[in-house]
Design a binder for these strands. Structure first.
Length: 469
RNA sequence: GCGCUCUUCGUCUAUCGGUUAGGACUCCAGAUUUUCAUUCUGGCAAGACGGGUUCGACUCCCGUAGAGCGCACCA
């Protein structure tokens, strides 16, 4: 560990699927720590599994990172391109006697494991080729395995979990090079981390066991040991493993559900990391505060109610024009895309202050604003339909002249409505609600008289007349 | 089965041997309001269980239970 140097962090996803919520949090923690310390944050695509890696997945991960607002330093490293280097390291280990060739066939190993399981023994490679000379194998296919220590213990010093001790006799001699000569993940990560100068490895707790194995390679090569921080996994709302059904969705699915990137960063940060009683932690503050010590040890569950609440907060904090852009983008992504006119966008922005404190997601916002960007009489939702009784429609007709006589300012419109309420002995709400239903098609909306003013005299009257009798 | 890890309100968490165990979300009640929402006030609600150690344990140790992860020529 060289304390004099700035930390080097990395996020190393395998492109076998989209960037899910757990990966996004791992990336976020790495990014925050790098930005907090003034260090470097690298991105490495672990595409050594040629069967499962796809260009689409790479694309999805890059897009996900971009949406989350997580930028990385330097070029993206593609692990597969470094296979020669990985092979060279394996070769070095081989010549130094720190690795050996194993000629056991897959069938043989399966049989071995079955026997172990039947005997209630731990299932692991028994080292049958550990001390046999390669000559015995002849020209049969072989894999290269690390010659790990078979006694003593390996300790992973983890910043989150503390010192975790593994008995070396439980760590089997893992494969470095497959029989087709390609490097395995275990070899590739260690070599790449070393070559990239990675000083801190922040990754999911599912890799904790791997850390002990990887330490064997690191020690064999005499490389510096990085600081490890294994962060607990995220579970679904029911405590079970996160699945598509719950929230192991692509981060972009959260965008489509109407969540803001700032919300996701804040929510994911608080899921497993804390700073006293603080809940609202904008990204700039997060960079200032983030540390490894305050990462919790236990797995956390997704809580969409809290996500919604946070998102509502950030929506209210966001500038009107930006929210309009979000709504516009959302509508354009819809199944039949819907493109808003310049006038409609302007109307949205003007009404945004009243709209945004009523929405928890951009999707809700777009829905609640529909009456603003759709001209003409509005379709009524069930509650509005129920409210617009014949009596209510007659009331609208009765109040219409008074409204028309105003200068169409919010105050004047309210005055007219109040006046009508007084002379007819109604409460203001009994006048306002039918008007609201006729104007917006809904029983709840931003303040009615401001809304009518924003809509304009002609448009509002068209809608009112459609539901008056 | 073997190994590793985790365990405070329903959920996310604070607490780093001495507190009426705090905050946030959810939920409930109330205030404000032309609706809804926002905002504000108040309320419900927790140390998995069992042993120790200690004057004193949520906090340290052991055990039990539950949960998660790992045990591939996947990453």
């Amino acid at each position: 560990m060289t304390d004099s140097k700035k930390p080097v962090l990395r996020f190393a996803p395998s492109p076998t699927g989209y960037l899910h919520i757990g990966g996004a949090r791992t990336a976020l923690f790495n990014w925050l720590y790098a930005r907090h310390t003034g260090g470097t944050f690298l991105l490495r695509i672990e595409d050594t599994d040629r069967e499962r890696s796809t260009p689409e997945a790479v694309e999805a991960i890059l897009n996900g990172m971009a949406w989350m607002g997580l930028d990385w330093d330097g070029q993206t490293v593609y692990q597969f391109a470094r296979a020669d280097r990985h092979r060279a390291v394996a070769q070095q280990l081989l010549t130094e006697g720190k690795a050996y060739k194993c000629f056991a066939t897959a069938d043989e190993l399966t049989a071995m494991r079955d026997a172990q399981k039947a005997a209630g023994k731990p299932m692991r490679y028994d080292g049958r080729w550990r001390d046999r000379g390669p000559a015995e194998g002849g020209d049969k296919p072989y894999v290269v395995r690390i010659k790990g220590r078979d006694s003593g213990e390996t300790v992973v010093h983890d910043k989150v979990l503390g010192d975790v001790v593994f008995q070396n006799d439980q760590l089997d001699d893992m494969i470095l090079l497959r029989s087709d000569g390609t490097p395995t993940y275990m070899l590739a990560v260690v070599v790449d981390d070393a070559d990239m100068g990675v000083t801190h490895v922040i990754r999911g707790a599912d890799h904790l066991n791997n850390a002990a194995r990887q330490l064997q390679i690191i020690e064999a090569m005499g490389w510096p040991v990085p600081v490890y921080a294994h962060v607990p996994l995220i579970h679904g709302p029911d405590g079970a493993k996160l699945s598509k059904r719950h929230g192991a969705l692509a981060v972009e699915a959260y965008r489509d559900m109407g969540y803001l990137p700032e919300t996701m960063r804040n929510y994911l940060l608080r899921l497993g990391w804390s700073h006293g009683d603080d809940e609202i932690i904008p990204t700039a503050q997060a960079i200032e505060w983030f540390n490894l010590e305050s990462i919790g040890k236990s797995a956390a569950r997704m809580d969409f109610k809290k996500l919604d609440n946070l998102n509502g907060h950030y929506i209210r904090e966001t500038k009107d024009r930006v929210l309009t852009a979000e709504v516009v983008a959302l509508l354009e992504r819809q199944a039949p895309p819907r493109v808003l006119s310049e006038a409609a966008r302007e109307r949205l922005t003007v009404a945004m202050p009243g709209l945004k404190e009523r929405a928890k997601t951009i999707v809700e916002l777009a829905g609640a604003a529909e009456f603003l960007y759709t001209d003409g009489p509005q379709p009524l939702d069930a509650a509005a339909e129920k409210l617009l009784t014949p009596d209510a429609r007659a009331m609208i007709a009765a109040v219409l002249p008074a409204l028309e006589a105003t200068d169409w300012s919010p105050a004047a419109l309210e005055g007219a409505a109040r006046g009508h309420a007084e002379t007819t002995g109604l409460k203001l709400g009994q006048v306002a609600q039918p008007l609201r239903a006729a104007v917006t098609g809904k029983t709840s909306s931003p303040p009615l008289f401001e809304t009518m003013a924003q809509l304009g005299r002609a448009e509002t009257l068209t809608r009112l007349r459609a539901y008056s009798s």
